[in-house]
Amino acid sequence: MMATETAARKPRKALPSMSVLGPVIALVLLIVVGTALNSNFLSAANITNVLARSAFIGIIAVGMTFVITAGGLDLSVGSMAAFIAGLMILVMNAALPVLGIGIPIILLGMAVALVAGIAAGLLNGFLITTLGIEAFIVTLGSMGIYRSLVTWLADGGTLSLDFGLRTFYRPVYFGGLFGISWPIIVFALAVIVGEVLMSRARFGRHCAAIGSNESVAHYSNVNVNRTRLLTYAMLGMLVGVATIMYVPRLGSASASTGVLWELEAIAAVIIGGTILKGGFGRVWGTVIGVLILSMIDNILNLTDLVSPYLNGAIQGVIIILAVILQREAKAKG
């Protein structure tokens, strides 16, 4: 196992440019195609739209990169986001008569989202590490639990933030600094911190070590369980952050909130070059993966080239192509 890992990794070190270039080439190609098909594609408004709506999946995918690098998986993030959004709305609506519309109630909502996210992540992590249950099963279970809980909280309908409160909270999604909207700024910050943690800090090296060989990592004095637990808690916290950005957009949460976000996040991580089995991850690659995914949607909406029935097929083809580009590069090297 260890031998094949090192053998497989040597060429990448010898010729890093190709594997690194794979997803970048795919992204550049998409941008060229998009620009050729519609002149509005590169307009500031469209770029802001695409980046801002990528932010939810993007922020979550940064956390997912660490979980997957450490050999784990989390299927519950989409449902978790829906549940946290519902919880946040309920708490903020309930606190409205006491706190009134203002900064404190927004901070309360944000605190609820972060605490709930970290708690949900720790719970997943605890079941996976301490009780030693398979990550796939634990998070499949919690995926169903959170999805049902939000349906139950909403009584099958939709939870809506008080109208006045929503108007006050709206700038958190639509406003920004120096013309760059908040979700983009937060996404960028999450990526920078994630990239530093992954490639410069001990935490990132520990994650990669655990993902590539748990026993060796253990004997090398890496606290396997604690590191894994931390990856899940961090992912939970980032789901909370994503929810803080999500709620002001439409001011509502329902059973259809965040459906399939988990698969989009996992796909973005893999397109970006992180290995699904764990042992190697890169955060900047994940960003490219997220951008590729949301750009495909955007381009398909901006053109009439294909029947909308085929949108899913086009997405699938591009995802597979983006990954093939990397594999081919590796084989050549």
Binding site: N38, S43, N46, N49, S254, S256, T257, D297, N301, P308
Partner: peptide, 23 residues
């Protein structure tokens, strides 16, 4: 002038409408 699937979903229709408005 244009038709896309918003899947009876608020988030999907938000994204589709943003793109329609750019186009």
């Amino acid at each position: 002038v244009d038709m896309e699937h918003g899947n009876w979903n608020r988030d999907d229709s938000f994204n589709v409408m943003q793109d329609f408005l750019s186009k």
